[in-house]
Design a protein around this nucleic acid. Structure first.
Length: 488
RNA sequence: GGCCACGUGGCGGAGUGGUGACGCAACGGUCUGCAAAACCGUGUACCCCGGUUCAAUUCCGGGCGUGGCCUCCA
């Protein structure tokens, strides 16, 4: 089965490998990365996780050396400048120094956060400021070719020169103009013309250009970085659905205009929007959740990255997702079950059904359903062998082995290393010391309880069990003896 | 105001022109000193109103609801 991806351009699932120009030895993907001025929030996490799974799938299908993934870092932007101006005033440094400091710091936080969510490092993480020269050159080409014009220190893209402008979002130009609520800047020829370059005053970070000192517009950054690292045409361009217009539309206009009309990307992918507890996430509503916050304490728990990631992948990427404490709790329970059989270093790949689900437009919920099937298979067989069930590190026979192995492989494929999961949770509960001595202590207590039970001293045995329960240890009496686990 | 998505059982969430996956929760049972776990089993859903069709949750139209974009917010 080949990889099919829903393409916003065609509004259907396209077979990636069948698209003209696709080269299996050079698969290229670009995803719009963060603007680094503050902690990334949970909404930012969605595309990162989704396209990380796609990155892993592409590497699996075509080989690690044949896939290039670019996720940019926008480190020049008016919000950053505003933040930098504040910091500069407070610390008595130049705005440019402050900008460099803020963006470096925030970019590192971002990387730490998404790493905690199990995301691989992209092949390249270019910073916009490193490509200003290329942006200036590209803007120059657009002016020369008649697609752009300078006006009052700005350079604007003339959308009327691009006949198919609007083809991604499928909104005709006249309709956009009619519906526009924005006040049109007087120097624009056409209300929908957008900025490629804008002037900077002395207090604002800027670069020299043929049109004076200034800074690039947002859209041109991605066009320049994509071209520099992936070439004129690449395979997949991803991002949140809110970026479809105008950002991605404008990227297409600029890049195609600069590249003799050659397509920018073969497939455009957009992940759905995220809400929190049924509402739009907004600072004003008080439901703004950063990744850092989830990891370090939200609603009383330090949610492991694996849990956040799994919760995110339990909904198909194009569907809207309602991010709630409840989905985190459900993900926690599920991963705990999986962990029973997921402790193996997989020696086989994921099952075919698992891979087929992912190859069908990244259908992670279906892939997860397959993991449940594998769990049941592993369990079903184990249940016939009471001595070997329940305990995480139990020995399995060959039948259960394959299922358990495929389960572990599937989880690893999704970027979830179940082996670190229980450890994570124990640490969350602040029981690090217990984690180290846990096994010995608990085993000793279980032995004492077993002796009490044998002597029919149930008062004592219950006391021991309650004592362990108070420490968060749940005992389970099975036909083959007592096992235990850490209660969440 | 214009354009566009989504609306599946108590919750999460696939999918389909014709017996509606899967998981959690619930319920019954086996087991058990009790409980939990495990195992077996059970029930419950396709927003509303029209239309097309032999047949619609699935296609079309309208409505309602939620959300997105049109304001360099993933």
């Amino acid at each position: 089965m080949s990889l099919r991806l829903y393409n916003t351009l065609t509004r259907q699932k396209d077979d990636l490998e069948a698209l003209p120009g696709f080269d299996p030895n050079n698969v290229r993907m670009y995803v719009c990365g963060p603007t680094v001025y503050d902690y990334a929030h949970i909404g930012n996490a969605r595309p990162v996780i989704v396209f990380d799974v796609l990155f892993r799938l592409l590497r699996h299908l075509h080989g690690e050396d044949h896939v290039t993934y670019v996720r940019n870092i926008t480190d020049i932007d008016d919000k950053i400048n505003a933040r930098a101006a504040e910091t500069a005033a407070a610390k008595g440094m130049s705005v440019e120094q402050a900008r460099v400091e803020i963006t470096a710091q925030t970019a590192q936080q971002y990387l730490d956060d998404v790493t905690a969510l199990g995301c691989l490092k992209p092949s390249h993480t270019p910073r916009a400021t490193e490509y200003v020269a290329r942006m200036v050159a590209m803007i120059g080409e657009l002016v020369t070719k008649g697609f752009a014009y300078p006006a009052e220190g700005h350079v604007l893209f003339d959308v009327s020169k691009k006949a198919d402008y609007g083809k991604l979002s499928r909104r005709p130009l006249d309709e956009m103009i009619a519906g526009a609520r924005v006040e049109v800047a007087p120097y624009k020829r056409n209300p929908m013309d957008f900025v490629l370059w804008k002037p900077s005053d002395a207090a604002t970070p800027g670069w020299d250009s043929p049109w004076g000192r200034g800074r690039p517009g947002w859209h041109i950054e991605c066009s320049a970085m994509g071209e520099a690292l992936l070439g004129e045409t690449f395979d997949i361009h991803g991002g949140g659905i809110d970026l479809m217009f105008p950002h991605h539309e404008n990227e297409i206009a600029q890049s195609e205009a600069a590249h003799h009309g050659h397509a920018l990307a073969r497939v455009w992918m957009h992940n759905g929007f995220l809400q929190v507890e049924g509402e739009k996430m907004a600072k004003s509503l008080g439901n703004f959740i950063t990744i850092r916050e989830l990891l370090s304490g939200w609603r009383g728990y330090n949610w492991p990255g694996e849990v956040i990631r799994f919760a995110m992948l339990s909904t198909h990427y194009r569907q809207p997702i309602d991010f709630t404490q409840s989905i985190l709790e459900q993900a926690t329970v599920t991963l705990r079950y999986f962990s029973t059989f997921g402790f193996y270093e997989p020696t086989v790949g994921p099952s075919d059904e698992f891979l087929d689900a992912l190859k069908d437009d990244l259908n992670t919920p279906r892939a997860i359903a397959e993991l449940h099937r594998l769990l049941n298979e592993a369990r079903g067989h184990a249940s016939n062998r009471p001595n070997e069930m329940s305990k995480p590190n139990a020995m399995l026979n060959m039948e259960t082995f394959t299922a358990a192995n495929q389960l572990a492989a599937g989880l690893m494929f999704l970027g979830i290393d179940i082996r670190s999961y229980d450890k994570c949770w124990v640490e969350n509960q602040g029981r690090e010391s217990i984690a180290q001595n846990l096994e010995r202590e608990v085993e000793a207590a279980i032995a004492a309880r077993a002796a009490a039970r044998k002597a029919k001293d149930f008062k004592e045995s219950d006391r021991i069990r309650d004592e362990l329960l108070a420490k968060g240890i749940v005992l389970k009496d099975g036909p083959a003896g007592t096992t235990w686990e850490v209660k969440r």
